[in-house]
Design a protein around this nucleic acid. Structure first.
Lengths: 232, 232
DNA sequence: ACAAAAGTGTTATCCATACACCCATGT
DNA sequence: ACATGGGTGTATGGATAACACTTTTGT
């Protein structure tokens, strides 16, 4: 039973349609992504990968992702605040068990909005810093590459960052989150001038206190919608 | 045999994976897209749609598109000079015959590079101005909307226009092609200053003559690669 | 000579960039 | 008093935007 006899040559119309989801969050100055332990001997033994699963006959790909995020990624249904299609991966050998085409999605979650259980790491499910990711199952390293590229481009050219940070944030929070995701330094004074002129954030009136330095004004995004706009 | 008994409720893993392709070209001041006559009674009788077909078990989605472009869209294999994945459409009822998920691609073709047969319109295959498109089969109107959006954004922010125009072109050709695709006027002098400074096109040394007005210098794109750069 | 499209320059405004010091709080 | 991060302004150069006339050809 060690051969790949699932990889059939029969001219059936096939196929197995799956979906995988890259869930991003941000905590403690690190961009995180949700990983699940994959155990499918003989091909994958105790290797990490993205949550995924088959799309059911009566589900859209997006519907399947919503279900998988809940059932497999261990998130409450209401937690998924931003989800978009990333890319469809159809390499013939991407799954050694047989032909599986995967529609990958990516989602963004605000860490402070997560419940305690959703933040917990264990042997089956964890939030991993993208800096610490090694070999993943299937073609998930390739997915991660595509996903990170897309996330970076969206962080620079849209308000998607609003889905990754706390509802209320200081300008420094916003700046450093963007710096870490984009992997480059942003000039503090120019960033503040620009973001304030764009009319996408507003002061809450409150300040962040108790941090052994001058209290910082808190801001929030005016709209919950992700709009395309050059942020930096 | 008039009911939709292909739309099964069986909990099979399913599925049928298909691909559809939006082939764009540009001729006579119009953005064109390739349509094929679809005849699948009782659902579709003599209605236009995009060329498409099933992905075979041993094909990637991109491979299937390359085949369909040749077999169904009537293009020589070498003609397809630019192809990229657009979006995967997985609405449950997008195909009334049953569950079919389609990975849509879009391609760009330079009209003068096409052979005569490839440009011909008949009752089964035609190039249609996107201004004259009415109801299409399946969810192809939605695909067209997504495709046009993507094409517009790429025309503004990449050199993809190089795949839609003749290899040698005047600055006015380039400008009007972009104007028509983007559906807005561009200032002639500012456009010329910008495009020339970007170092993406060069003079060929020749001029376009015989047009009852002053001959215009011809240019070509320096690189065949589509790069991301703000063109206008 | 006329029509038609090619080609060209200047100015004003806005935006991007570079850069360093004082302020308000906690300890 | 000191350490920490918050907050602010200006000057320069480059890009953008608005705008109209002359040139070269075909007829």
């Amino acid at each position: 039973m060690k051969n790949n006899n699932n990889k059939q040559n029969k001219p059936v119309k096939f196929a197995v349609l799956a979906t995988d989801v890259l869930l991003f969050s941000f905590y403690d100055n690190e961009l995180l992504v949700k990983l699940i332990k994959i155990n499918r001997p003989p091909y994958f033994k105790n290797i990490w990968g993205f949550p995924g699963g088959l799309v059911k006959p009566k589900e859209t790909a997006e519907g399947a992702v919503a279900r998988i995020v809940f059932e497999k990624a261990g998130l409450a249904k209401k937690s998924l605040i931003h989800l978009e299609q990333l890319y469809t991966f159809s390499d013939i050998d991407r799954d050694p068990r047989g032909r599986v085409v995967s529609v990958a999605y990516f989602g963004c979650l605000s860490w402070p909005d997560l419940q305690k259980i959703e933040k917990t790491n264990n042997s089956e499910l964890k939030w991993s810093s993208i800096k610490k990711i090694d070999k993943l199952a299937y073609d998930h390293n390739q997915m991660l590459k595509v996903g990170l590229e897309r996330l970076k481009s969206k962080v620079a050219y849209s308000t998607i960052i609003s889905k990754l940070i706390a509802r209320e944030f200081t300008l420094t929070d916003l700046e450093t989150t963007m710096e870490i995701i984009l992997e480059r330094k942003i000039d503090k004074r120019n960033f503040r001038k620009k973001i304030l002129k764009l009319n996408v954030i507003q002061e809450t009136g409150d300040k962040k206190i108790g941090f052994k330095s001058r209290p910082a004004k808190l801001y929030r995004f005016i709209s919950h919608k992700v709009i395309n706009i050059e942020l930096i």
